Computed example of a mutant assay.
Amino acid sequence: MIRFEDESEAIRDAASAESADLAAAVTSLAEPAVLLTILAVVFWVGNRRRTALVLSYGVAALGFYVSLEALLGLPHSLESALLAPAEVGADGFPSGHAFGAMVVYGGLVGAYERLRDPLAVAIAGALIVAVSLSRVILGTHYLGDVLVGAALGVGFVIAMNRLTRGAPVVGFLIAAVLAGLAVFLPETAAYDVLALGAALGGLLTAGWIDRLPSPRSRLEAAVLVVAGVAVVAAIRLVETALEFAPLLVALYAAFVAWVVFAPELVGRLSSALDRTRVES
């Protein structure tokens, strides 16, 4: 299998040691937890149904990828080539970061019908390319790994578009099936538990998406984002203290439930404060 080892080495040689920190920061833009947080913010301030659809794509992609990587079992690029410390798993083909970036950033462009918008396509494309190159620069993947990962992401989004037909609940159902299968495979990453919990959370809350209120002002939208991200950070902090898989599944389900119900809770709180001011 061609993984472009020589070309990957040339890219690493061309990158300076000082670029390692930047590459490490860029690569984090495709970490599952970061992608979920980005989708949460877009969900709170954007079109709820379209963003929920992409969220289901991302969760389904995570379940699909951990199974695929475990089945292929190809190693990462040489760890000795790393320019910066990074967690390197046992398997490395295709690149999960390139795959996830394409599914989420490319999926948002498609779901929001911005494929003919040069600026939206350019921003998403730049993010995908930057994440992919960061993996090569850090030495965690070969160039071939990220190219195949990105191409696989395109195919995955197209397939999910056709299967879901715009229904987030279908996307979360597919995600639950894929994550459920991944849980039973040997030597899969811990992300299979994340995918299963998030998929179940999406299935349980998808029916509420179209009923959620929109922020009545920019201030309410800002409060929603700040409060929402604060709770997400708290959930991630709790995650570090848990090792029991069923509890982690429940926690990730709660994560998605919070993303969905936060607009309702903040909206009710805002209405209650308005009534209090009027009565006073």
Rank of each mutant, 00 (worst) to 15 (best):
V238P: 14
L212C: 02
I174M: 14
E243Y: 13
A182V: 10
F184T: 13
V226R: 02
L237R: 13
V223G: 04
T188F: 07
A230D: 03
L194I: 15
P213A: 07
A233Y: 00
G197N: 06
E220W: 03
G180F: 03
V226W: 02
G228A: 04
L196N: 06
L224I: 06
V223Q: 09
G201R: 04
V226I: 01
D192P: 00
A222E: 06
G197H: 01
A227G: 15
T240K: 14
E220N: 03
V232A: 09
I174R: 06
G180Y: 02
P186N: 08
A179L: 08
R236E: 15
F184L: 15
V238K: 14
V238F: 14
P213L: 10
P215M: 10
A234D: 13
G201N: 04
A227P: 11
L200Y: 06
A195T: 05
V193Y: 10
A230K: 00
E220M: 02
L196D: 05
P213C: 08
V225I: 04
V183F: 05
V193I: 12
L219Y: 00
L185H: 03
L204S: 11
A233T: 09
P213K: 06
W208T: 10
L196Y: 01
S217D: 04
D210E: 14
A190R: 15
V231R: 07
E239T: 08
E220A: 01
F172I: 03
L173P: 00
D210I: 11
V229G: 02
T205C: 12
L200F: 06
I209M: 13
A182P: 10
L242A: 11
L181V: 05
L203W: 00
L178Y: 05
A176G: 08
T188M: 11
V193S: 13
E243K: 14
A234N: 09
R211Q: 10
V183A: 12
T188K: 11
P186V: 05
R236P: 06
D210W: 13
R218G: 13
G180R: 08
R236A: 15
A195P: 01
